[in-house]
């Protein structure tokens, strides 16, 4: 590294804002984690009609009194509203709403206790919840009848418009075939066509291979992440673990932009970064912003205008 680039790096790494964001001390760490968690609740939180206004009032209270975000009773009220909202919509709520509710519970437990090492507790909770998410995803995929043989992802690639651009790009199939597949599939689900025979979908050997590749990469990636979360690792191993988690987040949420889920995993990743590698925390904050860009349908724009 040249002396110029080294001094630029030193200038960036010692900038007070970046220093604060990297959560070097416990106070900064808790401030960033609670603020990011509130951010998830504001933009991708519980949308139940009964709780929309109470949540807005809680967020306004936090804006007026910033110290509230580290107050146990404040998080208890947020947890109560989250849990009640989840209770009323439990059959329809997405899995990341459950995870968000667990995380709010962990924040309440952390900030409510006086003799608890809050930073350490949040790290342990983040580790457990991330492990739980990954290992249960693996268990469900193993138990499902149509995952490991590639059927599920072939179905998704054939019919889900979010994946069509990717499938067209990597298999060379005409994007119009995916639009036709979608049309055939929607006709099969149309109540006015319930008595009509269903059509045959378009696929190809390349699409099948792509489905198999996505199936196994996703499956093995989740197994490896779950395992490395259990292992005691050296500093190098820790860095490799975080790079692996980042390598999971970047492609998965580019294709399936479930931003609330991605943000939650990023917050957990941020919590798990060892203090000796604060730049990794900045990396997670960068991913937090990247997921906002992912909400724009950039892949479709690229494929369909090319």
């Amino acid at each position: 590294m040249s002396s110029e680039s080294r001094s630029l790096w030193q200038c960036i790494s010692t900038h007070p804002v970046l220093d604060q964001l990297s959560g070097r001390d416990s106070h900064q760490f808790l401030a960033v984690v609670s603020a990011l968690s509130l951010g998830i609740l504001i933009f991708h939180g519980f949308q139940h009609v009964y709780f929309a206004i109470p949540f807005q009032l809680l967020v306004m209270a936090w804006l007026v009194v910033p110290s509230l975000r580290q107050a146990g009773p404040y998080w208890f009220i947020v947890f109560l509203f989250s849990a009640a909202s989840l209770w009323l919509t439990w059959t329809n709520a997405d899995n990341h709403k459950y995870l968000l509710c667990y995380w709010v519970f962990a924040l309440f437990l952390a900030f409510d206790s006086k003799d608890l090492d809050k930073t350490e507790f949040l790290r342990r909770s983040a580790r457990y919840l991330l492990f739980f998410t990954m290992i249960m995803a693996v268990v469900q995929k193993t138990l499902a009848a149509d995952y490991l043989d590639g059927s599920f992802f072939e179905f998704i690639l054939m019919t889900d418009s979010r994946f069509s651009a990717l499938a067209a790009l990597l298999t060379g199939m005409d994007p119009a075939l995916f639009a036709e597949n979608r049309e055939i599939y929607l006709r099969a689900m149309d109540p006015m066509l319930a008595d009509q025979a269903t059509g045959t979908l378009h696929s190809s050997a390349q699409l099948h291979s792509l489905a198999m590749a996505i199936t196994w990469i996703n499956y093995l990636d989740q197994i490896v992440i779950a395992l490395v979360l259990l292992l005691p690792l050296s500093r190098r191993g820790e860095i490799a673990k975080h790079l692996l988690l980042m390598a999971f987040i970047v492609p998965v949420y580019a294709v399936a932009p479930v931003i609330g889920f991605g943000w939650l995993i990023i917050v957990w990743g941020y919590c798990l970064v060892p203090d000796s590698a604060p730049w990794l925390r900045l990396g997670y904050l960068g991913l937090f912003l990247l997921l906002c860009i992912y909400e724009f349908p950039w892949l479709s724009l690229f494929v369909y205008t090319a």
């Binding site: 439990w90 059959t91 899995n95 739980f132 995803a137 499902a144 995952y147 059927s151 689900m189």
Partner: peptide, 25 residues
């Protein structure tokens, strides 16, 4: 017959049998 995608079981993207594949008329 709860869909694996729902109910907090972390079964998203594991099976075709998502609520969106179930039609009600």
């Amino acid at each position: 017959d709860l869909s694996r995608w729902k109910g907090g079981g972390m079964g998203m993207f594991s099976t075709q049998d998502a609520p969106g594949t179930r039609t009600l008329a």
